[in-house]
Design a protein around this nucleic acid. Structure first.
Length: 209
DNA sequence: ACATTAAGTGATT
DNA sequence: AATCACTTAATGT
């Protein structure tokens, strides 16, 4: 697994010295199955670097309502975790592993140091911030401007993309929760998509055609 | 065979 | 698009 980390870090374009430090200072975190990684109100002192798997990052309010924000995939850093740590705020974020995932947890207190010493690290953080921000804008206008049927289709295609599979193993209920709507609505829209022959429906499973 | 959970649907707001 | 109420289908015991 160390090799894989090395590979990823090199792929990002970090220099040798930094890679060695990262490998020395961080710790490995394996997540099996669909499991919450960071939940609201808990402060975490680490910045996760995704080695493999997909994380779904969400916003959560007091009542437990969730809003999807963006995905984090292999080779990506969760730059947002820096901002909540720097400002010493409790994370209003919740991250859930979508699949089995392997993360490299980097202690937050080293970030500053690395940013000033390694320009490649600064770039990683800034780029990652930028990328998250762009994704955020996408999901914002999908919420603001897209109708439910378009959102559903985008959701299905996103899932297809991130899992590399045409099959989505979720119930209508789960999908509805992630889109903040009701199961009935999802069932109806999926049914419509099925008639248009864009998906095939099964129990606990949707296939994108 | 029975209970439980997922999905489909008409009617109403 | 949400909610209710009900039906039907799939799955587990």
């Amino acid at each position: 697994m160390r090799d894989r980390l090395d590979e990823i870090l090199q792929g990002i374009g970090l220099e040798r010295a930094l890679i060695d430090e990262i490998k020395q200072q961080g710790r490995l975190l394996k997540i099996v199955g669909e499991q919450p990684l960071i939940s609201t109100g808990v402060k975490s002192g680490d910045m996760p670097l995704v080695i493999s798997g997909t994380l779904r990052v969400m916003r959560e309010d007091e009542m437990g309502n969730e809003v999807f924000l963006y995905y984090l995939e292999g080779g990506e850093a969760c730059a947002m975790s820096i901002s909540c740590c720097l400002s010493n705020q409790l994370s209003g974020f919740k991250a859930v592993a979508e699949t089995d995932a392997v993360l490299w947890m980097v202690p937050m207190h080293l970030i500053d140091d690395w940013m000033s010493r390694f320009q490649s690290f600064r770039k990683l953080i800034v780029d990652s911030y930028q990328a998250r921000f762009d994704e955020l804008m996408l999901t914002i206008d999908s919420i603001a401007f897209m109708k439910m049927d378009e959102r559903l289709m985008k959701y299905l295609l996103d899932k297809k993309q991130s899992s590399g599979s045409y099959e989505i193993h979720k119930s209508h209920e789960q999908i509805a929760n992630e889109l903040n709507t009701s199961r009935v609505v999802v069932s109806r829209l999926l049914k419509k998509l099925e008639r248009e022959e864009r998906v095939a429906l099964y129990r606990n499973r949707v296939e994108v055609l």
